[in-house]
Design a protein around this nucleic acid. Structure first.
Lengths: 188, 188
DNA sequence: TTCATATACGGAGGGTCCCTCCGTTTATCA
DNA sequence: TGATAAACGGAGGGACCCTCCGTATATGAA
């Protein structure tokens, strides 16, 4: 029973990254529904290789988005440091809008199957929202009965039709609607 | 060139309705992804028959939802008559929430392809929202820069995870968040 | 009623997609 | 410099969407 300290083969890592890069490009160029065969073809790699690295379509999507999501999660801390909570939340949402406008495809991963596969990305997003919401609630900036979960769902609606012209402006207006609404009943 | 006044065959209409009923049941029982083969099988009808009546999957989905959507659209008038605009809007959204909670599957049709196929259902929904928004805007109840289109997108987010427990309560909270937010900046 | 025909039906089959399996190739290390 | 574990490629199975066409049947004129 050799504990096998053999170094992982170089081509493995190379192919993994090649596939991730190709997949991201393909998602962007063709759309979120590109076939995996197509991705393997573009990467000039056998379909078997793709599946060895990413056992299911969702696993690949998840891996592609992970890095992106990490960047968004990382922004939370600096936002909370620099701004008061409700404003931090608003800015983070705007960040997300710009992000989606540029990449167009986070939507696919956003609501992803409740599957364990999305556990990490899902967590990163939920945790980010959770921290922002908690901070704002503590500061008394927003109504108390809203959970990160609720907000995440609501924000999912932003993404519909992200490809259409005018989407970005629409989404920005909606951010303000939501942020204002979170403050609680407005007597006007 | 006979202008052909022959009466449509009876089996045609019969099969069409059989398919619609079967499809609705199957969407509800199996989920929005039931295969068309499965639906034809359940209806005990050849797959060719299904396709003759509904040339694409979307056409079938559209037809199934049409009736449901019509009911929602019909509610707008009575709501606008009985309540002040912002309240009518809120009540309509709550109606939608209950509706989705019960049927679970309007989500599939909501965002449907910008395709012409969804023109009718899409119109019905957009027009409903539009009338509610216009009335509220005229009454000065909501901010002026929001379009029906924006709101429709935002509401799409409500539907994610409609199957999860606690969804209905979450969605109701969100309705209030949105309605409050629509009123415009809240000085708190 | 009967029969010609327009109409509708059934399901085989083609194309695509996801994913599995296994024979072949290659990087690692003794 | 092999021996061998590790990784690769792609044929092929199964499911799905949709098309096509031979078969069956409802309709309406005779």
């Amino acid at each position: 029973m050799p504990v096998s300290a053999r170094k992982p083969r170089a081509d493995r890592q190379r192919n993994r990254e090649l596939l991730l890069d190709t997949a991201r490009a393909a998602f962007e160029a063709v759309g979120p529904d590109v076939s995996l065969d197509e991705i393997a073809r573009r990467a000039e790699v056998g379909i078997g290789t793709l599946y060895r690295h990413f056992p299911t379509r969702d696993a690949l999507v998840e891996a592609v988005y992970r890095r992106e999501v990490e960047a968004l999660a990382a922004a939370v801390d600096s936002l909370l440091t620099a701004h008061r909570p409700a404003d931090a939340l608003r800015r983070w949402m705007l960040l997300l809008v710009d992000y989606v406008a540029a990449k167009k495809l986070i939507a696919a991963a956003w609501a992803g199957p409740a599957d364990a596969l999305y556990a990490v990305s899902g967590r990163l997003i939920t945790d980010s929202i959770d921290r922002l919401v908690s901070a704002a609630r503590t500061a008394g900036d927003i109504r108390a009965d809203i959970e990160a979960h609720d907000l995440k769902r609501l924000m999912g609606g932003f993404f519909a039709g992200a490809a259409e012209p005018g989407w970005t402006d629409s989404a920005r207006r909606l951010v303000d609607v939501v942020v204002d609404g979170l403050k609680g009943p407005n007597p006007r």
